[in-house]
Design a protein around this nucleic acid. Structure first.
Length: 453
DNA sequence: GTTCTAGAAC
DNA sequence: GTTCTAGAAC
């Protein structure tokens, strides 16, 4: 009898490659000065954290709850153990200590920390914020006032960059502070609210914090993370309309949420579109314009024109290179959704006209169709690559993809050829006579076209 | 995809 | 002084 072979599998070392984990340090929100009951706060906090970590599973985030009071930490820890499921332990930890000395005291580096403040965002409203303003001087207050001149709203997050030459940055590795206006139930402080109301707002506060953290870790500039839309009437009517348009048959396959080995180092910036497909409902209306079971339509984070959206199938498809003849129906459905959104946009600004299509060599994973107005007036349009990616052959109309699929059954491009196109000299897409050398001149030229139209 | 930086080119 | 370019880092 032949002895059984024992195979020793050598796991590729790359699987364990060091990745830079991004940290967020935060206190237990509302339980210090807001009089919010700790057990309920822990439940709300842990649930929000769990939702966030599950949604962004492929990212190595570590969320560090830091408090001086071990009692609070214990309550959170117990709650977390109860609900954490299969989430890795390092992703959420509780630490006894000072949020501003995580690195020097505990060797934990958090590039972002959360500090509670009041609606006035005044310095020194609590001990932690006092320490921060002591450390950073009046500059931080000025910066806060500059960025957020309006009063803070309860439940919202307000990130601020801190100076690179400050001790907090140099010795503690803190890059940004996310100020939050947290709900208050303390009757000795102004405007205490009921537990019911506070519960709702605490959840919103955690969501805002995590949303801000998510945006900041993807190379965003800081800005107020607003989730409020005051016209509730309009939103709900819109939702109803959307629901009736959706088809209930489609389910996301479990594979679509599997961990994808990131081609790039840490963070996985090229995967940023995936969470929108997995859980579009988690994102504010300012990011997700529409979703149903099959598609998500989001606002491009760096719009290259007055209107720039992405229509994305929720089913996992990396790029146009994966499309086969049997995907023709999907491409046509993308086009239809695109046409629908163009109509919507035109209702608000009839001057606009649009193109919809794909980049020949996209940077981001997950098939996405650009729907972009042809004014190209936007501060995010900054360089030649941006311009050429929408105005040369590099941009492929959806109809062209349709034709290629019909004829050839697949879409295969010469990558080098298309990448070279991005270096072409600047040329106006409307009047071919004029040759323009510099981006600032092009932008002025585009403004003229817009004003004439 | 973006930001940041340094150096070159204008 | 301004703008572009290219590369690294995220």
């Amino acid at each position: 009898m032949v002895p059984k072979l024992i195979l020793i599998i050598n796991y590729n070392k790359k699987m364990n490659e060091q990745k830079r984990v991004v940290g967020l340090g935060f206190p237990s929100i509302s339980t210090n000065f807001g009089d919010f009951p700790i057990d309920i706060a822990a439940e709300i906090g842990c649930e929000a954290i769990k939702e966030f970590l599950k949604l962004h599973k492929e990212f190595d985030f570590k969320l560090i709850l830091t408090e001086q009071d071990s009692k609070v930490l214990n309550v959170f820890e117990l709650k977390w153990k109860e609900i954490k499921d299969d989430l890795e332990d390092f992703k959420f930890q509780t630490k006894k200590g000072n949020l501003l000395q995580l690195k020097s005291d505990l060797r934990i580096e958090c590039r972002f920390i959360v500090v509670e403040t009041t609606w006035r965002m005044k310095p020194g409203t609590n001990q932690l914020s006092k320490q921060i303003f002591d450390a950073l001087g009046s500059k931080l207050h000025e910066e806060l006032k500059r960025l957020y001149p309006k009063p803070g709203i309860v439940g919202e997050a307000y990130p601020v960059k801190i100076p690179k030459d400050s001790d907090l940055h140099k010795s503690e590795g803190i890059e940004q502070i996310i100020f939050v206006v947290s709900p208050n139930m303390n009757p000795s402080r102004p405007d205490p609210i009921s537990l019911e109301k506070a519960k709702e707002l605490l959840k919103k506060t955690y969501d805002s914090i995590l949303n801000a953290f998510w945006e900041l870790t993807n190379g965003q500039e800081y800005r107020s993370i607003t989730t409020i839309k005051d016209n509730v009437q309009e939103v709900s009517a819109f939702d109803i309309l959307m629901k009736s348009a959706s088809k209930p048959s489609f389910k996301i396959s479990p594979e679509s949420s599997r961990r994808t080995p990131s081609k790039v180092g840490s963070g996985g910036w090229n995967n940023v579109l995936l969470p929108y497909c997995q859980k579009p409902e988690m994102f504010p209306k300012s990011e997700v314009y529409y979703y149903d079971n099959e598609f998500v339509i989001i606002f491009d984070k760096y719009p290259k024109a007055k209107n720039h959206l992405l229509v994305i199938p929720r089913k996992q498809i990396d790029n146009i290179g994966e499309l086969k003849k049997q995907n023709l129906e999907l491409v046509r459905a993308l086009k239809e959704k695109g046409q629908w959104v163009i109509e919507k946009m035109k209702q608000e600004n009839p001057k606009l006209f649009f193109r919809m299509g794909f980049h020949a060599v996209p940077s981001l994973r997950q098939l996405h169709m650009h729907v972009i107005s042809q004014d190209f007036i936007s501060p995010s349009l900054k360089n030649k690559k941006h311009w050429n990616s929408f105005t040369t052959e590099f941009f492929i109309d959806v109809e062209e993809i349709e034709r290629i699929l019909e004829k050839q059954g697949e879409v295969k491009f010469n990558k080098a050829y298309y990448e070279d196109l991005l270096k072409s000299p600047l040329k106006c897409h409307l009047c071919d006579a004029k040759s323009i050398k510099f981006i600032p001149d092009l932008k002025k030229h585009l403004e003229e076209h817009w004003n004439e139209s």
